[in-house]
Design a protein around this nucleic acid. Structure first.
Length: 196
DNA sequence: TGCCAGGCCCTCTTTAGGGCCTT
């Protein structure tokens, strides 16, 4: 299967945990060149302690806080609709890239879209997900770690504010721009939306 | 009570186990 796409958008999610079957979206961010999308929502479920520990998010009295700072939030449905508006503003179809997309970001995002019957509309804009973790692990063998912060450190020589979805998406775009994988290589690590 | 994410990849593998990656 060869995936044709016109635009690569890098995205990241912060969620209430690591179990893709039960966790909920808290933050969704995406970047494409200098343009960016960033939105927060109050999750319906409880945050795992480990998620609070790494992200700093807490829900208190129905409000979302990040390290004590109240965050502006919107309903998850509106978050997804405005995200698709953002994606629709680029030449289509759009390829959505994330680190460990196949096993984490893609199933979580797809689950949220299905909840609001938005998957069909989503498919009209997005052709698939690129998993940058699998790509880099296969193309650049022998590294000690393939976590996104380690790859950014290794290839770009810098640190960044991980576990802020917007910073993670920006760093991922920088990383892939540096690595500059060829279209055939990219195609090997694209997963169609029907997979989720 | 005891469970506690799970798929992928590697290897001292395939009659399996452990570490990694995402929050």
């Amino acid at each position: 299967m060869y995936y044709e796409y016109q635009t690569k958008v890098f995205f990241d999610l912060e969620t209430t945990g690591l179990d893709t079957k039960s966790c909920d979206v808290i933050q969704l961010s995406a970047v494409c060149g200098a343009r960016q999308f960033n939105a927060y929502t109050v999750p319906p479920g409880i945050l795992t302690q480990s998620a609070t520990d790494v992200t700093g998010f807490v829900v208190s009295n129905g409000r979302l806080f990040c390290r004590g700072v109240p965050m502006k939030t919107i309903h998850l449905h509106d978050l997804l609709v405005t995200f698709m508006d953002f994606l629709r503003s680029f030449p289509r179809p759009v390829l959505l890239a994330a680190h460990n997309a196949r096993l984490f970001d893609a199933p979580v995002l797809t689950k949220a879209l299905k909840k609001f019957n938005l998957l069909t509309e989503f498919k009209s804009v997005v052709c698939g997900f690129l998993d940058t973790f699998l790509l880099v692990k296969n193309v650049h063998r022998g590294l000690a770690s393939y976590s996104q912060p380690n790859l950014v450190k290794h290839f770009l020589g810098k640190s960044y504010k991980e576990h802020d979805a917007l910073e993670d998406a920006r760093a991922l775009q920088d990383l892939l721009t540096r690595l500059n994988p060829t279209p055939p290589v990219i195609n090997r690590f694209i997963y169609g939306i029907f997979c989720f």
